[in-house]
Amino acid sequence: MKKQKAILFDVTLCAGCGECYNACKEANHLPETADDFLKDHLSANTYTVVEEYGDVYTRKMCMHCVDPTCVSVCPVGAMEKTELGPVIYDADKCLGCRYCMQACPHHIPRYEWNKINPKVKKCIMCYERVKNGMQTTCAEACPTGATLFGDRDELIKIAQERLSSDPETYYQKIYGLEEAGGTNVLIISPVPFDQLGFAENLPKEALPTYTAKALEKIPGVVAGGGAFLAAMYWLTKRKNQIAAEEKQNKLNSISGDEK
C-alpha cells in the first residue's frame, strides 16, 4: 500500500486570509457564492470554508476519513477511498439516495438540490493533482503554512512535535487521529475542538464497523432461517397429515362398527 497523503491544518497559524477558499473555488471551477468568504458555508459550490471563532480561524472541508462512512454506505460504490487517501466521487454511478450525506459524521457532503441531474459535492483533496505527485491547491495557496500537505505519518509526527514543544499554546489533541476511525485531515488548535464546530462526540471505531456487525449476520440468517423454516414446514405438514389420517381411521372404524 502506498503512503497515505494527508492535510494538517494548524489553527494557530491560520490568518483567516481566505486564500485557500479562493484557490479551491478556482481550481474546481466553482462559482462565487458569497461577498464575504468568512460568512460563506459549505455548499454544492463551496468545498472549503474559513470560519471565524472569536480571534481564531478554522477551516472546514471533507476530512477524508481513513475508513470513510460515506464510502461504506453508498449502495453503488459511487464514493471511493483511493489508495492515496483522498475520498472521491463518481457522479455517473450515484443514485442520489443521499445516504452519504445522512451518514457522514462530519456533515460534509452537499447536494445540488435544484438540479434535475444532481451531484453530491465535496472536497476531493484535489485528487487529480495528488495522483500526479502535487500538493493540494489549498495547501499550495496557503501563505502562512497553516494548511500543510504531506504523508499522513509525517504530518502526525509534525503535529505531535508542535503539541509537545508548545503545550501552552496548543490544546493537547490532534483532531483526526482517532475520530471515527481517524481521518486524513488532521487539525491542531489552541482551543477545544467543539468550540470550533467539530464533532467531539464521535466514537473511536470507524462507523462502518457498526453496520458491519449487522451485515455479518446475514449469511447466518439466510442459512439458519432457511433450515428452520424448511424444517417447520415439513414438521407441521406431517402433523396435519397424521391428524387427517387418524380422523379417517376413526371414521372408518365407526362405520365398521355400524356394519
Binding site: 453503488v76 460504490g77 459511487a78 458491519a212
Partner: peptide
C-alpha cells in the same frame, strides 16, 4: 445501478 455496481458493505445495497 444497484444491480451492476455492488457495494456489499452498504446496508442500502
Amino acid at each position: 445501478h444497484a444491480i451492476i455496481y455492488w457495494n456489499p458493505r452498504s446496508v442500502m445495497f
